[in-house]
Design a protein around this nucleic acid. Sequence first.
DNA 1: CAGCTTAATGAAAAGGATTTCACAAGAAAG
DNA 2: CTTTCTTGTGAAATCCTTTTCATTAAGCTG
Lengths: 331, 331
Amino acid sequence: MSVTIKDVAKAANVSVATVSRVLNKHSNVSEEAYERVTKVMEQLGYSPNHLGRDLRKSETKRILAITASAEQSFYSEVLRGMEEAAFAQGYDVLFAATRDDPKHEMHLLNMLFSHSVDGAVLLGAKQDAATISKLAENHNIALCLERMEGCNVLTVTIDNVKAGKDAVSYLIGKGHRRIGLISTETRSQSSVDREKGYRLALEEHGIPYDEELVYLGSYETESGTTGCKYLLGLDDPPTAIFAISDMIAIGAMNYAISKGVNIGKDIIFFGFDNIAYSHIFVPHLSTVEQPCYAQGKLVIEKLIENMKSEIPDKSIYMLPHSLVLRESTGD
Amino acid sequence: MSVTIKDVAKAANVSVATVSRVLNKHSNVSEEAYERVTKVMEQLGYSPNHLGRDLRKSETKRILAITASAEQSFYSEVLRGMEEAAFAQGYDVLFAATRDDPKHEMHLLNMLFSHSVDGAVLLGAKQDAATISKLAENHNIALCLERMEGCNVLTVTIDNVKAGKDAVSYLIGKGHRRIGLISTETRSQSSVDREKGYRLALEEHGIPYDEELVYLGSYETESGTTGCKYLLGLDDPPTAIFAISDMIAIGAMNYAISKGVNIGKDIIFFGFDNIAYSHIFVPHLSTVEQPCYAQGKLVIEKLIENMKSEIPDKSIYMLPHSLVLRESTGD
DNA sequence: CAGCTTAATGAAAAGGATTTCACAAGAAAG
DNA sequence: CTTTCTTGTGAAATCCTTTTCATTAAGCTG
């Protein structure tokens, strides 16, 4: 049985109200009482029970960030941005993983409904747009990294369409006209958008879209390998490959290397995300860099703003990306 | 203002006690009342306030896992093990990052003291052994991955001394006698233990310890590169290198490759952790694999056991590791 | 049919904090 | 010397559940 505010009050010979005032640094408490209470708290090793506090104030000063699997090392910067922005305003961020299970995601979201946290950020939501929109009507919720088509909810992401287009345009600018695309079968919005960017770039430069040049696999490295094998095996193989993630691009390059192809000359590669390994792996990978830290920071700031305001901001914020050019494109 | 148990009770024309009974699936509630209450809860969109519940029961069914930075992609399996073991017993696991700051770690631990979570697992603690021991006297706390010398607290890890010794013994078994070691300046227990293993292996085979062959850097890939450059630059360079982490080993191999050294023949490398990239990176890296998932699972199971028992188990559990042999050692 | 058990229910206490309200004493103002 | 304002304080209400205890009604036993 741990020591409560009552015990402190009794030992300091004051009322619980006064102890509470000391705890919350309220003004109207005499120097003398303050000292006495503080000393007693120290002596008894008192630690206030947050549950009581949270219940009374109906706020926890905690935000839940829900990710698919904690796997993506590339989340880490986003999480750091969230954590630091939150801390600056007296909030804590807690992370939980859905294990890619929509039901488990809902289970975690229940922490929001049950007042165990004040808000939630979804990094790649598993529910559908209608569900999220509905939830966002009554709860402080935001999306980060992945927007959702037709979803009325605060969102912080990048313009994946434009990013994909920029990357592919760069490849075209280098004189390439047969450009392979390795994407995912999973229809995540970011994949879809990046593919769209690929198509727009071709279109803009008058290059016909050739379905043969598109390989859909998983997010695994191995899928990049398989995809590259497929593309290089074509009668008229591509001279450039755009992968919608670095992991996939690295798998693809691995295959090319194993075949003795000269990367940067015979064929060039473009990835996405700028994960740490993209500049460890040789040849270093050209890639699209998205502002991870900034996205994490912004989504928390906006979410906290929403928690305080009457009419929530449900805008979609798109932060600027940039191209990082390295050896894989011959730079 | 959200709907409470009182609102449900009124609308269903029963007492709050009955609603609570329905909520907790207690037996003594009539079919008729059960139906009525359930329907009303549905209609009103009632979601029980966990704060009230937690306060009353003084338990949250939540466990906090504290990591340094969420960066280490290699944590992810540990976290998955924790998450699944917890879920199986009706607990949730939340993760939070210390940002490598002992003060922030203490701030997070405060969630434990303030009853916001039922227990905490530290994956690489930042406090000293005495502090942790003291906390463990009154709170449900456990260490995972990193043990602490002289700390009286439930711990789940591997035998890093033996693992280091096994790796280096393997190198010696291949006929090598000048073996380089790349470790970290940070004196984490796992680094220290793995170094000790290195020394024991040499000793056991009558090879004198040569301080010159030891390079201490950071956990970054670049540090491996620098370390390898140093070692290969020696008058009498090593023919084998043991790095206390895969990231470091990969950085080291990168340097060797850039110098045109034939890895697996001219020199061999051994890493630690078996991260995903160790078999993506070419040449594939020989490494020590530790049972991440199993460690996560066990630490949660033991912690939950402790929460239920009167006398807490403060044993140190060491799970078995294994050697994964690949191209970098010429296998 | 009296006496007992069982089932279903509600009123109220409890859990640990914050906050409102009322009150007392002392200071300032007239 | 009254009146008004501050300042410091405590009692009690409140937040939302769960749980204990008492009560009533119904079912069973002999």
